[in-house]
Design a protein around this nucleic acid. Structure first.
Length: 769
DNA sequence: GAGCACTGC
């Protein structure tokens, strides 16, 4: 409760009174011009510039907010003193400044300022190489002067690395230390301080902040960058900010996007003005196949080898869909290339795989320089990178001149009818194809070979990849929206409204989890659950775990379930990996096995050299350390909300049973029952036929299991499963397991039998008394 | 007896 109290403090009457007093002192700047010594919160404020009236830092005080032009800003930028810190500008700064002024966006600084000043919302379109992500926020700083108003400018990014690296770059451009005037904020790391005026952050992070401050009052301008990627967080932020700007007339909003669908953003934001800036890339020549290809992998290999033997210098980037396909393709390209090289038909070729689950050290290899020709002046050597979509947005590789695009990627799809998210190899969109082609023109003119016909490109590919909001289970999104104060979900103005069935499913799920009441309002449990960066089922399991005397263990388990797979199984050493896993196996299931792994990982002997220990036991250090990190974050949230941390003594025979019961409290909607003969299972309610994933340690005799995940591949699998008892289902989730609501059949009969048994036992106990 | 595209709090 103490923390909650602190939250209220800033809003209670006494602090409001204090604020009024400061303004009554005679300046309208919220106290900024007070003597620093009189206000401990302003101790960081640099008062040095005021001693020198010619000081360039003073120029900004004379700037008329939202009334400046490029000339004024540039004069301030030219120094000699840093207008934001008052320090002398470095040589490095001057060097970078010259380069910044060559960027395409710079030409339109005045045009940008005019639109920014005139309009509350602005859509800004800049192609790659325009400099928008680094320059626009700085243009804003010189006109918005957030620091004179005790506000900040926020710029969101879909990915953490981007937020970090861009902040680093801009801090250098502004000649300040990262974390001071320019900082970033991502999960697990807040590198900002009291003097921060420009904050780069992940879109998810801003959304989290919005949950506690619905009007985002700390910011005077919010820039949503890479909006065209349409992440779930960006989409929700757009819907939210569309409402916030009505309440906060002083807030400015800039939506930044790569071309293409810019008019869609414009329309969505009531025809906001649009400014487009050209990019700086080289032309890319596009080639199509004359006829459709039957086997795209085979066609891709042929194309790569042909490029290598007949084209001039330049590296190759091939897009495939997944780890296995990529590793396989790398092997084949290597084999065939060796033959070409032997016959003197091609130069050396270095092939690198690239996908997200690849260890960072191996990912780094793609930046190795291409091999030189075998003999001076001989056929060019080159590297060929075979990558998933990761190279389409997250990673850029210079030196790519040839792109091979078969036109497919794995995409998440959601089926609300059976509540299953799965990955499907699907045709990419036109926008994706263009992005892929663009990867060939970063350093010089390039070529892109599309392994489909021009007609297929024009007629069959959709314009844009469907936004995430249309392809996901929205249970946690709906919970977030409720917490954001959006009561009327149906009329919440999302750019692409999801199917009503998806929303209904989410509401139903949250109602069963008791996060929403029958009116659809947030319950106390729901409010608590929304505090956790977790799926609702996991959050609920964690919150109620003290009732099962095992919150320490459930905390570990929750962390383990929200990081990537901890078990490693290299193709050439599967047997050994499986043996190692058996060391940790618990007969009652995979959840308990994971917990055993975590406890072993945290033991003193393993912690002596965690990397070696994990390597020896075929475990992913990265995943386990990540789980540790997540666990700490979740633990703090539990403490803040006074959720008790406790364990059943290990010697107690209920130790594991309590954990399994707590699992049911969160995952009672993900239960399957064995279907008679023993191999197949049927999911409860949705009645899908499923198989236990072969990776499970669970012995087949478990009649009822909870599962963490439904995996749809060649067959329907349930993965990470643990055995439970049917009487627990009836006891812990009576609403969901209301027998009258079940369809006639084996599951209903089995539940009925269980109920009879339970009642009989109860009667016996009573009789004995 | 199989496989995890990618990202985020």
């Amino acid at each position: 409760m103490t923390v909650k109290r602190a939250d209220y403090d800033s809003d209670d009457d006494s602090s409001r009174a204090k604020r009024v007093k400061v303004e009554a002192n005679g300046n309208g700047n919220g106290g900024v011009k007070m003597e620093p010594s009189s206000n401990p919160y302003l101790a960081h404020w640099n008062d040095e510039p005021k001693k020198n009236p010619d000081n360039s830092a003073d120029r900004l005080y004379s700037f008329k907010r939202h009334g400046t032009n490029a000339k004024q800003a540039q004069a301030a930028e030219d120094g000699p003193l840093n207008p934001f810190t008052g320090k002398t500008l470095s040589k490095n700064y001057m060097g970078i400044l010259k380069k910044r002024r060559d960027l395409p966006v710079h030409q339109q600084r005045d045009e940008f300022l005019k639109l920014y000043q005139e309009s509350q919302i602005l859509v800004f379109v800049g192609e790659t190489g325009s400099g928008k992500t680094t320059q626009i926020p700085q243009f804003v700083l010189y006109d918005d002067l957030p620091h004179l108003n005790s506000k900040m400018v926020a710029c969101t990014q879909p990915r953490r690395v981007a937020a970090m690296s861009v902040a680093q770059r801009v801090a250098e451009e502004m000649d300040v230390s990262l974390g001071e005037e320019v900082g970033y904020s991502i999960r697990f790391e807040d590198k900002t301080g009291p003097s921060t005026m420009l904050k780069y952050m992940t879109d998810g992070m801003l959304l989290r902040e919005a949950m506690h401050d619905h009007d985002l009052t700390r910011y005077s301008t919010i820039i949503l960058d890479e909006a065209h990627e349409r992440t779930l967080a960006t989409d929700i932020l757009m819907g939210l900010l569309k409402e916030v700007v009505l309440r906060r007339k002083d807030l400015k909003l800039i939506i930044m996007s790569a071309t293409l669908d810019a008019t869609k953003f414009q329309k969505y934001f009531h025809d906001a003005p649009l400014l487009a800036v050209p990019g700086r890339t080289h032309p890319v020549e596009i080639f199509y196949t004359p006829a459709p290809e039957r086997d795209y992998v085979e066609a891709a290999l042929r194309t790569v080898l042909q490029i290598h033997s007949s084209e001039g210098e330049g590296d190759i980037l091939l897009f495939l869909t997944g780890e296995e396909e990529i590793e396989d393709a790398c092997r084949k390209i290597n084999l065939e290339a060796q033959e070409l090289i032997r016959d003197g038909l091609a130069g050396p070729l270095q092939v690198y795989p690239l996908y997200g689950t690849l260890p960072p050290a191996q990912q780094q290899k793609i930046f190795n320089p291409a091999p030189p020709p075998a003999t001076p002046g001989g056929r060019p050597g080159r590297k060929c990178i075979v990558s998933t979509n990761i190279a389409e947005t997250s990673l850029t590789i210079d030196g790519i001149v040839f792109v091979v695009d078969p036109g497919f990627s794995k995409q998440k799809v959601y089926n609300p009818r059976i509540r299953v998210e799965s990955l499907l190899v699907s045709p990419i969109s036109k926008a994706s194809a263009q992005q892929r082609a663009g990867r060939a023109g970063r350093t010089r003119p390039g070529k892109c070979f599309r392994l489909y016909t021009e007609v297929a490109f024009k007629k069959e590919l959709i314009e844009q990849t469907y936004p995430e909001v249309l392809r996901s289970n929205l249970a946690s999104t709906v919970l977030e929206l409720k917490k954001l104060g959006i009561d009327d979900l149906v009329h919440f103005d999302l750019m692409d409204p999801p199917a009503p069935e998806t929303l209904m499913r989410a509401l139903e799920e949250l109602n069963y989890l008791a996060c929403l009441d029958d009116e659809g309002d947030l319950t106390q449990l729901g409010k608590l659950a929304s505090e956790f960066p977790l799926d609702p089922a996991l959050a609920v399991m964690l919150i109620v775990s003290p009732e099962f005397y095992c919150s320490n263990e459930i905390l570990s388990l929750t962390a383990l379930l929200s990081v990537p797979q901890i078990f490693v199984r290299p193709a050439n050493n599967r047997k050994r990996a499986d043996e190692m896993k058996d060391l940790f196996a618990h007969p009652d299931g995979d959840h308990l096995t994971m917990l055993n792994v975590y406890h072993a990982f945290k033991s003193d002997s393993a912690q002596e050299n965690p990397k070696q220990w994990c390597h020896d036991h075929f475990l992913s250090v990265r995943a386990l350390q990540q789980a540790d990190n997540v666990r700490l974050q979740l633990k703090r949230i539990m403490e803040r909300n006074e959720l008790e941390l406790m364990s059943t003594p290990f010697e107690n025979k209920k130790y594991y049973e309590n954990i399994r019961r707590a699992l049911v409290a969160g995952f009672f909607m993900q239960v399957a029952k064995r279907d008679g003969n023993g191999k197949t299972y049927v999911t409860v309610k949705d009645e899908q036929n499923v198989l236990l994933h072969p990776s499970t340690v669970l012995a087949q005799e478990s009649e009822w299991v909870v599962y963490n995940e439904f995996v749809l591949t060649t067959k329907n699998y349930i993965r990470t499963v643990t055995g439970v008892k049917p009487e627990w289902l009836l006891d812990i989730a009576p609403n969901y397991y209301d027998i009258d609501g079940f369809k006639k059949g084996e599951i209903k009969n089995a539940l009925q039998r269980t109920m009879t048994k339970v009642l009989r036992k109860e009667a016996e106990t009573k009789g004995r008394r």
